[in-house]
């Protein structure tokens, strides 16, 4: 990491520290998020998909 990249990283971290509490709460929720749902079943059998052309 060169000086310019390091400075950019520090600026980015500073900006993060200045975020409002509300944004930080949203990010905390994002960090703790785990997918809980599965997508709907496919509309075509996987075995048929490769031949759908």
């Amino acid at each position: 990491m060169d000086d310019a990249e390091y400075a950019a990283l520090m600026r980015s971290r500073d900006r993060r520290r200045q975020r409002s509490p509300r944004v930080l709460v949203a990010v905390a929720r994002l960090n703790g998020w785990r997918p809980t749902q599965s997508p709907p079943p496919p509309t075509i059998e996987v075995a048929d998909l490769v031949n759908c052309y």
Binding site: W33, P35, Q37, S38, P39, P42, V46, L49
Partner: peptide, 11 residues
């Protein structure tokens, strides 16, 4: 919407 890749990877 978030799903695990494993749930759709075959398709």
């Amino acid at each position: 919407w978030t799903v695990p890749l494993d749930s759709i990877v075959e398709e």
